[in-house]
């Protein structure tokens, strides 16, 4: 069967509707909510704070610790076992490395920034939504960072190339899903994972589509952060 139309009626290069909000968790130093279609992520940032056990401290740079977790009720009706598992540990690690590429870690030696990502609702692209939320939360926490970072999944279903896959497309029998994290100004790729088969040309096209797609996410991230401080800006404006 050919795949001529997307299950939710989107165009092939169209993203799901995005909602973003900064500062949703008052006790955290910075926090954010990011929703993309039916995938939603909370991120809370604490720190920089002192790091123990002491052997983990690095006198040259600070470290960033990410905890990714899907809530028990977040899936399609099947209970997700809470707590760390092989998959969530891997995802925490790749998000950590992606975020470390934009945060100025050398400004807080011997200390740690903790990022907690929780997903109340999932429909594919969770690590991407997690990165987008974490990026807003880090900025909201006043952490020095070179740039914003956002992520998006691209992929192939049958012979069609598309962006921002939902779960139906992600789990298609002849499908490839590639999460890509991109740094805003430089366009550098900070995360890229792939399984499945693609030709070289297809991958090139997909990366181009990802670069195009994240622009919209960056706009939403910026809007979310500026909305939180809108009152201050209006007070200072002419």
């Amino acid at each position: 069967m050919t795949y001529s139309k997307r299950t939710d009626g989107r165009k092939f290069e169209e993203l799901r509707p995005i909602e973003a909000k900064a500062g949703v968790i008052p006790r955290a130093d910075g926090s954010a909510w990011f929703k993309m279609g039916n995938t939603a992520a909370y991120a809370a940032v604490y720190g920089p704070r002192s790091l123990y056990p002491k052997f983990m401290q690095n006198p040259k740079v600070g470290i960033i610790r990410v905890n990714y977790s899907m809530m028990p009720f977040s899936s399609a009706g099947e209970r997700v076992r809470p707590g760390p598992n092989r998959r969530s540990k891997e995802i925490s690690m790749v998000i950590e490395k992606a975020l470390a590429s934009v945060v100025n870690l050398e400004e807080f030696p011997n200390s740690v920034v903790d990022v907690f990502i929780a997903l109340p609702q999932t429909d594919a692209g969770t690590r991407c939504a997690g990165i987008c939320a974490a990026s807003i939360a880090l900025a909201d926490a006043g952490i020095p960072m070179k740039d914003m970072i956002a992520a998006l999944s691209v992929g192939r279903v049958a012979d069609k190339l598309l962006v921002d896959l939902n779960y139906d497309e992600d789990s298609h029998e002849d499908g490839v899903d590639i999460p890509v994290a991109i740094v805003q100004r430089s366009g550098h790729v900070a995360l890229l994972q792939m399984d499945g088969l693609l030709t070289r040309e297809q991958l090139k096209t997909l990366l181009g589509m990802a670069q195009e797609g994240v622009k919209k996410i960056f706009e939403e991230q910026k809007k979310a952060l500026k909305n939180k401080y809108k009152a201050i800006e209006e007070e200072n404006g002419e």
Binding site: M145, M148, Q184, K222, K226, I232, E233, G237
Partner: peptide, 12 residues
């Protein structure tokens, strides 16, 4: 950007 405006990381 305008003076006194709110900016986010990575903004020129």
């Amino acid at each position: 950007v305008k003076n006194k405006s709110i900016v986010v990381p990575g903004e020129e």
